[in-house]
Design a protein around this nucleic acid. Sequence first.
DNA 1: GAGTGGTCTAGACCACTGT
DNA 2: CAGTGGTCTAGACCACTCC
Lengths: 262, 262
Amino acid sequence: MAKAYERIADELRDAIRAGQLGPGDRLPAETDLAARHRRSVPTVREALRLLQDEGLIEKQHGRGTFVRKPRTRVLRTNLRHQWEKNRAREPEQERLRTGATEHATGLQVNDLVFHASYGEAKADKSLAEAFGVAEGTTLVERVYRTRYAVETAPFALVSSYLIRDMVAENPDLLDETKEPWPGGTQSQLLTLGIELDRIEERVTAHPPTPEEAEELELPPGTSVIVLRKISYDTDNRAVEISDVTLPGDRTEMLFTTHLERW
Amino acid sequence: MAKAYERIADELRDAIRAGQLGPGDRLPAETDLAARHRRSVPTVREALRLLQDEGLIEKQHGRGTFVRKPRTRVLRTNLRHQWEKNRAREPEQERLRTGATEHATGLQVNDLVFHASYGEAKADKSLAEAFGVAEGTTLVERVYRTRYAVETAPFALVSSYLIRDMVAENPDLLDETKEPWPGGTQSQLLTLGIELDRIEERVTAHPPTPEEAEELELPPGTSVIVLRKISYDTDNRAVEISDVTLPGDRTEMLFTTHLERW
DNA sequence: GAGTGGTCTAGACCACTGT
DNA sequence: CAGTGGTCTAGACCACTCC
């Protein structure tokens, strides 16, 4: 015989999947569900927790339990990399007109980039390995959030790293007041004579840590996508690394691979 | 004042992050934790559930609660697509020698592909849109699981679709007994004169449904990566679509984007 | 059999939302 | 204020693992 809380959860899940309970609808109160199934309230709460962990429902203290609405998805595509590379050689005036984020996500200029912090950091083991330098090497670090204007929750947390000694020739790159860099990183790297050859992106997913949940305003029942982007120049050196944390329930990534013709 | 279960969870999480409790270590019994914090057992269980949802711990009925070990990760890279394309034109004997999965994941031939089902299906709305055909169009459907030999849990659930009318010219493609297709899909498409131009992969992440959790043997506190791969031929037609479900805690995806030289 | 986590009860009281 | 979910108690009994 199935457990009581599973039976309650199954009944509600079926109702949601069948559309008897649509997005935004309120579920019966916990006391009602308990009475209907002749179970205690904690048992009902156990059932609701299952559905919450699956991302199907959302609880609102004092108001009730609701079927979750799908959130607006943001598309992130690797076509942006070639676009940014082309853009890097355009006149500065043209570059200032449009930001890279809008193009990458398909959204308009309502997007905002908040510059949160800028400074130096020492390479930890993972960064040192990726850059191919010694642990403890000094890096330039930028940390920022990307936010969709009509919502409060950011849709990306980004930490971006450069090797300080490599970029020291251009003082603008070390000058905090020059933020945000007009034309993006590729344009700035060009001032150092650096041309990018390829970009590697590693993607994993996991449930959010409490810190990630708070920063991305993630409700229980969502996942986090972690992306590490490594840019290599034409000498095959790793010149820039970005760690990006994305909310899984509102991010869609599109990678296009072009194949050589026969 | 912080809630009791949060304080207990914080204490344990700190101990794990600091390394006082390492991977595989057993946590104190729930009754012990309750006594130490002068709280009831359900309160302690609430704290443990938090950590479980974060993927930090794993409960084993009758044995105890343990700090989770990171699972062996499987790397999936888009370099495989070019590799498979090159392979498609090699002699059949050579193609039979190695499977595509081994190369794609970096694992050896211990991998197994279980063919679970093979048949026809009608295009639902999402597939019809992606293929650019009418809803209800007949498709050839293959459903299979990829498993790592030394573990019981599969690391991928795959549903692969072709348009039946497009592949009908080659009876081998409709013949179940010819499975697994020697040389992979690209090799078979070549027999129809179809050459692939590019591959699009869309990636999202979400918490597992009960069905996914069961099939992939996912413990609570893991995410699922969903990947839809669309292959386009040189006439820009979508010729093959695969929906791949991957366990988030053991999958790493690597996408390399090559940029045009200046 | 001893020890562990899993399920469940029947309540109490608190905190938040809306009227 | 009434109604909702959030936290917590003090126990009971079951199911599983290991010795």
